[in-house]
């Protein structure tokens, strides 16, 4: 139930910000479309802890700031490699997932892809195949560059489903 309330308030905020008109008619249209969206997603039964992870909100914001710093570092590295200061040595490695539930796998693989210099290619049941641009990047990923700052998701999720 709280997922639906959170989704409704989020959709309403987006509507108000995007429309920019605050007369009763436009706000009425907004309420109608939010209600329609909620009814459709209730019928499709897609709103749960996985598609709308509000239990992660605090952790995720912290994680995004840590990840933004990693992305900045990786960008500088890849720019130096394009310009020719550092060599280009492609690597293929398999990295185990830090957590085993589906949401963590998706977040981890997307974080690896979002960091320039490493891109996930294939997902196996327990690990992900990553193409990196350099030996140092591959070594850093094996040592747990992103896994160390990864948010704790599975423990919270168990409480959520009970």
């Amino acid at each position: 139930m709280k997922h639906y309330i959170s989704l409704a308030s989020l959709l309403m905020i987006v509507w108000l910000l995007l429309s920019g008109h605050y007369n009763p008619l436009m706000i009425g249209f907004g309420v109608i479309s939010v209600a329609l969206t909620l009814w459709l997603s209730f019928r499709m039964n897609i709103i749960d802890a996985e598609s709308h992870p509000i239990h992660l909100s605090g952790n995720l914001v912290k994680y995004w700031f840590a990840l933004a710093y990693k992305i900045f570092q990786a960008n500088v590295d890849v720019v130096l490699r394009i310009v020719g200061v550092r060599p280009i040595e492609p690597q293929l490695i398999r990295i185990p997932f830090p957590e085993q539930d589906d949401l963590s796998k998706v977040i981890y693989a997307n974080s690896v892809t979002l960091t320039p210099g490493s891109a996930s290619i294939e997902i196996y049941p327990d690990s992900v195949l990553v193409h990196t641009l350099s030996k140092e990047g591959a070594q850093a990923l094996i040592e747990g560059d992103i896994a160390n700052i990864f948010p704790v998701t599975s423990g919270v999720k168990k409480e959520e489903t009970q």
Partner: peptide, 26 residues
């Protein structure tokens, strides 16, 4: 512009993916 140059300097498809990654993120 550096990402655009990297799109031409990289040796194969998987490396070009990283060059596009620069222009998509930072």
């Amino acid at each position: 512009v550096i990402g655009g140059i990297g799109l031409h300097r990289m040796p194969d498809f998987y490396c070009r993916l990283h060059a596009v990654g620069i222009t998509d993120t930072l």
